[in-house]
């Protein structure tokens, strides 16, 4: 009987643990929001989650709610689980659902399910695939073309002002099948074209820092005279650092052999490199802007009175390394964690 006993005890233990972790709903009229993340393990996601909580807390009273209850579920990078998670959110009668889609095609079936249940669904940062139906009630994302275009333009201008000529430009891009990655690459290309420059070599990374490392190693060997690197996202910068250090080219701005770097997103690592002078320009996520867009739209969506755009592209923040300490940046809030 010992085995069965062990089983009962362990089930009981698991259940009581769940109870312990569960958040209790508050009294009064509550706005219930469900979020389905694909994963929840980097600072950009924390920043989004906390930003949304903060702004909804601030605005709910103005729209007749006493409090906000959040139901957040993580799909562990599994499209089938995300579909199940969103079903669970629908079962719980959430007032609205936010989803960061893991599979931009498969998410359409969840959008359909939510809409059939009469619950507005908002896609966050990653839009549905082209042609996928039905369309979500709202998409909130970043204008990723402008992110790269504006940052790239300011970056090249800064370089030329400093008396440098951008030579043998290397660009490390994201995944070739990701819209955001393609937009950024296009943005960088157009920015370079404004100055009659051309990107000499493009390294695809598939959003994988390991692949970026091998790709960039080869690119740097082919172009040892390069003084200018464009990067699709901050987490790849450490791969660039590894290669440049090995080739005696990793120096902060102001030193003779400084390689100019323009990156994206504003992760804590990126902010740190900007403070230290290794990175020169960045087109960062405007987290507060995205959250504001959500707060402005969600109450009307719930009431069925929303009449704004179905896709809200938030303008990026283009940040010069010189200003990094004077502007409030989302990534700066997570610097301590990044240092660990």
């Amino acid at each position: 009987m010992k085995k069965r006993l062990a089983m009962v005890l362990s089930l009981g233990m698991a259940l009581s643990m769940m109870g312990g972790f569960a958040c209790q709903a508050e009294e009064g009229k509550t706005l219930k929001l469900g979020i389905s993340w694909t994963h929840y393990n980097d600072s950009l996601f924390y920043s989004w989650g906390e930003g949304l909580e903060k702004i909804m807390e601030e605005t709910c009273k103005d729209h007749g709610y006493d409090s906000v209850e959040w139901v957040s579920i993580v799909a562990e990078d599994d499209a089938a689980k995300q579909a199940a998670d969103i079903s669970d959110l629908i079962t719980q009668d959430c007032d609205a659902i936010i989803a960061y889609a893991y599979d931009n095609q498969a998410i359409a079936s969840s959008v359909k399910e939510a809409q059939e249940a009469g619950i507005p669904i908002v896609l966050w940062d990653r839009d549905e695939a082209e042609g996928a139906t039905p369309e979500a009630d709202l998409f909130i994302g970043l204008d990723t073309y402008n992110q790269a275009y504006l940052a790239g333009k300011a970056f090249f201008q800064k370089m030329i002002d400093a008396g440098e000529t951008p030579t043998d430009i290397i660009s490390i891009m994201g995944a070739t099948n990701d819209n955001n990655a393609l937009n950024r690459q296009k943005g960088f290309e157009d920015a370079a074209a404004e100055f009659d420059l051309e990107i000499k070599q493009t390294v695809p990374s598939d959003w994988d820092s390991e692949k970026a490392l091998t790709g960039f190693t080869a690119a740097w060997q082919a172009n040892p005279g390069s003084n200018c690197v464009l990067i699709a996202s901050d987490f790849i910068v450490t791969s660039v650092q590894t290669v440049l250090e090995a080739n005696d080219a990793w120096y902060p701005a102001g030193e003779e052999d400084h390689v100019w770097i323009c990156s994206q997103d504003g992760f804590p690592t990126g902010v740190k490199f900007m403070q230290e002078g290794y990175m020169d320009y960045s087109g960062m996520y405007n987290v507060d802007g995205m959250c504001e867009n959500f707060a402005n739209a969600v109450y009307d969506l719930i009431d069925g009175t929303y009449e704004g755009e179905a896709k809200l592209y938030t303008e990026p923040m283009v940040v010069d390394a010189a200003d990094v300490d004077t502007i409030e940046l989302w990534g700066a809030n997570y610097m301590d964690e990044a240092a660990e």
């Binding site: 362990s10 698991a14 643990m17 769940m18 972790f21 929840y40 209850e69 139901v71 957040s72």
Partner: peptide, 22 residues
């Protein structure tokens, strides 16, 4: 187990702990 954790709105990291324990 998954469904209950979703319904109870258990913290993300706690779900990993529970699954690990299971």
């Amino acid at each position: 187990i998954t469904n209950v954790m979703n319904l109870l709105n258990v913290d993300f990291f706690a779900t990993y702990v529970v699954k690990g324990l299971v």
